[in-house]
Structure formats: structure tokens, C-alpha cells
């Protein structure tokens, strides 16, 4: 505890760095997964291929990916972009399937009735299908969020600044308190972000309260 109190500023700055890597990756995974999931949900032939391909991204070992990506993209290993792109790929692995399932979960009667009312295909997507896919999308996004927050720490092995650096550093210097702080802070951050997403879901989807967890 004394170590924590003595290093509050360091913990704070590492938390901010951690979020600056995790949040863009979470947002990007979500935004990119939507069109891919939509395509898979609406074109039966592509579904199996797209979902399998996306799922296989998760099979790529993370440390090698952090090292290989920079040579492909011509960026630095410790660049934030490198970490964010790698984490986005892992996020996509989970989120594409969730998006496809979410958009497929919108019932045929609702699609039919909104078409009959005179929604154009685009307005039907934004105003009917996307909001109704919300609860399943949120469930997927929560998994992506906590998994991304935890995966960020792998990049600390390369020396990228984030909460993971606490346990890498603590391990090397034999400071148990620092190792524990790194682990606990990462978990707490994941729990907080997850809670925030749940809250956001309640705010944006008051109609879904009670019907789905």
C-alpha cells in the first residue's frame, strides 16, 4: 500500500496511457465490425467465410503480431498506432461475429413492418435495425472492451507505456507491490469500463431494460 501511495502519479499516468491505447482500439473494432457483420448477416454465402476469417485473427499469437506489424506497416514497434492496430484486429475477431449475430437477431416482422411503413433501406438500418441490434451488440462490445484492456498489457513487454509496465518493471526489480498494483489496476480499469458500457446501454436503450441482461 505504501508503494501505491508513493507512486500514485505514476499509476495515474500509466492508466491514462493504457486508456489511450485501449479506447481507440475498442471503438475501431466496433466501427469496423459493423459493416462486416452487416455484410455477413445479409449475404448468407459470405457468413461462414467472414466469421471464420475474423475468428482466426484471434489465433495469431499477440507478441509476434506486435513485432511483425511494424515491418508490414512501416511504423515503430513502440508506436501507439502499432498497438492500436494489433488490438483492433483482436477486437474484430470477437466483434464481427457479435455484430453479425446482433443484426440477424432483428426479427423478420419488424423488418417487414418498417419497410411497409415507408422506411428507406438506409433509414431502416439506422433507425430500426441498429437500435434493435443494440443489446446483442453491447454484449459483444463488453467482451471486446475487457479483453482489449487486458491485452494492452502484452505490449508493455516491448516497452510501451501502460499499466502492464508496472508488473513488467516490478517483476524485473522484484517489487511485489508493483506487480500486484499492475494486475489489480488493469482488472479495476476493465471493470470500470464494463460498468460504464452497461450504464451507457441503459441510457441509450431504455426499452431493453429487464428483457436482456
Amino acid at each position: 500500500m505504501t508503494w501505491v501511495l508513493a507512486n500514485l502519479e505514476l499509476i495515474g499516468s500509466r492508466t491514462v496511457s493504457h486508456l489511450l491505447l485501449a479506447v481507440p482500439a475498442i471503438v475501431l473494432s466496433f466501427v469496423l465490425a459493423l459493416p462486416l457483420g452487416w455484410f455477413a448477416a445479409n449475404h448468407r454465402w459470405s457468413r461462414a467465410t467472414l466469421l471464420t476469417a475474423a475468428g482466426l485473427l484471434y489465433a495469431i499469437p499477440s507478441l509476434p503480431l506486435f513485432v511483425v506489424l511494424p515491418t508490414i506497416l512501416g511504423i515503430g514497434v513502440r508506436d501507439a498506432a502499432n498497438v492500436i492496430i494489433a488490438l483492433t484486429l483482436y477486437g474484430l475477431a470477437l466483434m464481427v461475429r457479435a455484430a453479425a449475430d446482433a443484426l440477424s437477431s432483428v426479427g423478420a416482422p419488424v423488418r417487414l413492418s418498417s419497410t411497409a411503413l415507408g422506411y428507406s433501406p438506409a433509414s431502416r438500418f439506422w433507425q430500426v435495425e441498429l437500435p434493435l441490434a443494440g443489446p446483442v451488440l453491447l454484449a459483444g462490445l463488453r467482451v471486446v472492451a475487457v479483453s482489449t484492456i487486458s491485452l494492452v498489457t502484452v505490449s508493455s513487454l516491448l516497452g510501451v507505456d501502460n499499466l502492464g509496465l508496472l508488473f513488467v518493471d516490478g517483476f524485473q526489480r522484484g517489487i511485489l507491490a508493483e506487480v500486484l498494483t499492475g494486475i489489480v489496476a488493469t482488472v479495476v480499469l476493465a471493470v470500470l469500463v464494463d460498468g460504464l458500457l452497461v450504464l451507457l446501454g441503459r441510457l441509450l436503450m431504455p426499452w431493453a431494460r429487464g428483457s436482456r441482461a
Binding site: V110, G118, Y119, S120
Partner: peptide, 22 residues
């Protein structure tokens, strides 16, 4: 079709209401 549908009322089985709208 879109403007046509907006000037014709449509009522279906199970009402077909949008569950996310009041």
C-alpha cells in the same frame, strides 16, 4: 416504393410495432 408506402396505411398481424419506440 418508399413515398408510395408512406401514403398508404399498413396494419399487420401482431401489430409489428417497433419495440424500441414508445
Amino acid at each position: 416504393p418508399v413515398p408510395l408506402r408512406r401514403r398508404i396505411g399498413y396494419v399487420m398481424q401482431n401489430a409489428g410495432l417497433l419495440p424500441h419506440r414508445k
